[in-house]
Amino acid sequence: MAHIPDGVLSAPVLVTGALVSVGLLTVALRRLDYERLPPAAVLSAAFFVSSLISVPMGPSSVHLLLNGLMGLLLGWTAIPAILVALILQAAFFGFGGLLVLGVNTMNLALPALFCALVLAPWLQRCPPARIPWIGFAAGALGVLFTGLLVALSLGLSGEAFVPAAKVMVLIYPPLALVEGLITATTIGFLWRVAPEMLTREDNPRV
């Protein structure tokens, strides 16, 4: 649901999205040196594969966005990783579109960056029992912020889209709950099994 198709948004929204994404990407690529490219690629592949899992929810099933978790584990590198996933999904699965890539990247990358800059530092400081809560916050906030940005992109494109944008805002909270629970479990698991992924300095996180 986070993939907006082509032909919907207005030109100013498309241009803003593209500019923001290019800006974020420039910073992110500058911070990512070739040395750390292989581990970053393996992690972004892991996220891509995880996003293929269809999670049953109510009568239907959903796919996870994972941008919160990506932000926690990858930091700034989450931005190129998200763009790579979106390019592959647009070309091979027909999710989203071409000119909206900028907006779609922005909608997923800004929440990821929030998790990287605000929530990730807490992983070092908080008592181990609270670690899953940070995971929950990252998963849930990632989805909620993305939903809000998707709704904003729609609403700013024209008066007629505002009710559809409101429906979108209503759809996201249950998704956020499920994604939060799954991310909390994942982060709790990583804390016990491979705590270096959450704390170590030489991982792809910047």
Binding site: L43, V55, L181, T185
Partner: peptide
């Protein structure tokens, strides 16, 4: 199911 998938993803990441 959700918890199990959380572990599955964690294992995949490790």
């Amino acid at each position: 199911t959700w918890r199990t998938y959380g572990w599955l993803m964690g294992m995949l990441l490790v």
